[in-house]
Structure formats: structure tokens, C-alpha cells
Amino acid sequence: MIALDDTDRAILRALEQDATLSAGALGRRVGLSQPACWRRIQRLTEQGAIAGRRLELDLAAVGFGVTVFLGIKIGTRGRVSLEDFERAVTAIPEVQVVQHVLGVFDYRIKVRARDIADFERILRRRILTLPGIGQVEANVLLSEERLPGPLG
């Protein structure tokens, strides 16, 4: 675990909200000079607290209006390795997240589709043909509330 002081936490909270902030703008928010803030960002990155910065798209605005979470149970353990399944599922462009989980299902995956008909095509042609696929349960996202992270 990385030792964080209050300033480090303030920097991380601000970057969680807007990763495009410059070191100068971020420094003004947290009460540091641009060089001091930049050094903190570099240290936090080197120590692994900042793992990267991502661009967040409004997928509905660019034509992907349906999000579906699938619970997948592997049906033929022993004949198909989990690595084979993971390699195949991550090759599907519409799959955004693959989580190996403990519980009723072995995997939870997040799929983005243009609409329900597009999702059905992805399900029939890509998901249900995956190696080792067993039981599949779909949950269509109706709405989403984003909450601040644990530092927020």
C-alpha cells in the first residue's frame, strides 16, 4: 500500500473527476505550485497510485445505446481452459469488461451494442459460440449513477 497524505488524496480526487487537468490547474486546486504538483503526480505514477488516464466517451452519443451485463457459467470445465475462454471473449470488440468472479457465475462481462437487435446478434453469433460457454444470464442496464471513488 502506498502512503498518501491529504494533498496526495486531493490530487487523486481531482484527477478522478477530470484527468485532463494540467499540473498548473491541479496545483491551484490543491494549493501547490505547478512544479510541486507535477512532482507529486510523477511520484504517484511511479509508485503505482496512478495507473493511467483514460478518455471517457459518451457511447450513446456515438451510436452504442445499449449496455448489457452478462453472467456466464463455464459449462465444460476440464475440456476448455479458462484462459481459452478469456482469450476468445476479449477478442469480441463489443465486450468492454471481463471479470472473473466468485459466485453463481464464473464471469461477468459488460457488452455495448447499438440497440437490442445488435445485442441479439452479438449474443447469438459471438457470445454463445465461445469455448466452454454454459449458462448465460443477461441484465440490460436501464440507468447508471456514478458515485465518487473511495477517496471522494
Rank of each mutant, 00 (worst) to 15 (best):
M1E: 12
A3Y: 07
A3N: 06
D6K: 13
D6N: 10
R9L: 09
A10V: 03
Q17G: 12
T20A: 14
G24Q: 05
L26E: 01
R28H: 12
R29A: 10
R29V: 01
V30L: 04
G31H: 04
G31E: 07
S33G: 13
S33E: 02
S33Y: 01
P35R: 04
R43P: 02
R43H: 08
R43Y: 01
L44G: 04
E46S: 12
Q47C: 06
A49G: 09
G52E: 06
L55A: 14
E56C: 08
L57C: 07
A61Q: 06
V62P: 04
V66P: 00
V66T: 14
V68I: 05
V68K: 01
V68D: 07
G71L: 01
I72Q: 03
I72M: 03
I74K: 10
T76D: 14
R77F: 14
R79H: 15
E83G: 14
E83H: 12
D84L: 02
R87M: 04
T90I: 04
V95M: 05
V98E: 06
Q99R: 13
H100K: 14
H100L: 15
H100W: 06
V101C: 11
L102D: 08
L102W: 12
F105I: 00
Y107K: 05
Y107W: 08
R108C: 10
V111S: 08
V111K: 00
R112W: 07
R114M: 07
D115F: 04
F119C: 12
F119P: 01
F119M: 09
R121F: 00
R121Q: 10
R124W: 03
R126G: 07
R126D: 15
R126K: 15
L128N: 07
T129I: 04
L130N: 03
P131V: 06
I133E: 08
V140Q: 11
E144I: 08
E145G: 09
E145T: 14
P148Q: 10
P148V: 10
G152P: 01
